[in-house]
Write a protein that binds this DNA or RNA. Structure first.
Lengths: 152, 152
DNA sequence: ATATTAATGCAACTGATTCTCATAATTAGG
DNA sequence: CCTAATTATGAGAATCAGTTGCATTAATAT
């Protein structure tokens, strides 16, 4: 059994819940997707492997995975929640271009010590850190400049 | 005319749009709410002052306020988008307790220089920075510890 | 003033997420 | 192994935040 499956089982048992076959498939699928995903994309990737798992169950399982600390929110887009698996991934910063939608990720490690100092001061136990920066990527930034010149 | 109204007018004119009376009311309401708000709360606070402004117009105006740099996303909650006005507010960090929902804000200024260094390196023009940290506040942290002891 | 363009209210619509409920799977105790 | 008790599931209906179409109204330019 893989490490993340063990962790999920532990979490479920602590809550009096069961590690069923649909839950195992959903967990696996979440860890096989190495991009951010939304509920439907997760569902589609499961359908490719096995059948008879409903979208409702996917929606019901995602919160469990999050509470178990295996999956976390990513940047919301197109009016849908997006997620990413955590295990084995360092925390990171999301840079989202508001024009072309390009999403870049960088490491959070340079910033997190400073965050932890603040957390300690507040006696806050940080479990999930999300740093999202919206703006313009270098490509769109230069296009934007051209337009501004044209408009004048 | 207040400073933020001037800024909004400037933005609208640049886009060939008009500063109408509903838009002015919505802007004012957004700046009178000193908490995070969602579209409906904004709508309700406007209804208290004037009538005949529809929820649809509120929904249509919020993106304009955001593009004008006057309003930004806050931490989403209860499946709804939440917002806050920016003008005159320094950027900040949101600390959200996953148990009691308490939301604390602290200053981002200690971290933002480090963010800007990364942004410069990527040639990314950062317009909106959102640092959300989910976890347990000191109160719930101690309750949680008690429970864990009980459960054993 | 008048024409042109954009803005609005209203109500209908959309689409992601949640819920209901009847059925199926899982575990514990014999 | 059976049986009872509990939890999980699939299917589809329901919900509800957010969006849109459209006929009407308001704002600017001429």
């Amino acid at each position: 059994m893989q490490e993340h499956e063990k962790l999920f089982k532990q979490y479920l048992e602590k809550k009096g819940l069961k590690l069923t076959s649909p839950r195992r498939f959903i967990l696996e699928a979440a860890f096989n997707l190495h991009e951010h995903f939304n509920a439907e994309e997760l569902y589609v990737s499961i359908k490719a492997i096995t059948s008879g798992i409903s979208l409702a169950t996917v929606y019901r399982t995602i919160p469990l995975l999050m509470e178990a600390g295996l999956v976390q929110h990513a940047v919301r887009s197109d009016g849908r929640e997006r997620y990413e698996h955590i295990y084995g991934h360092p925390k990171h910063i999301h840079w989202l271009c508001r024009k072309c939608g390009a999403l870049t990720e960088t490491d959070l490690s340079t910033l997190s010590p400073a965050i932890e100092v603040q957390a300690k001061g507040m006696q806050f136990c940080a479990e999930e850190i999300e740093l999202s920066i919206r703006g313009l990527c270098w490509k769109c930034k230069s296009i934007d400049n051209e337009n501004q010149i044209d408009e004048r």
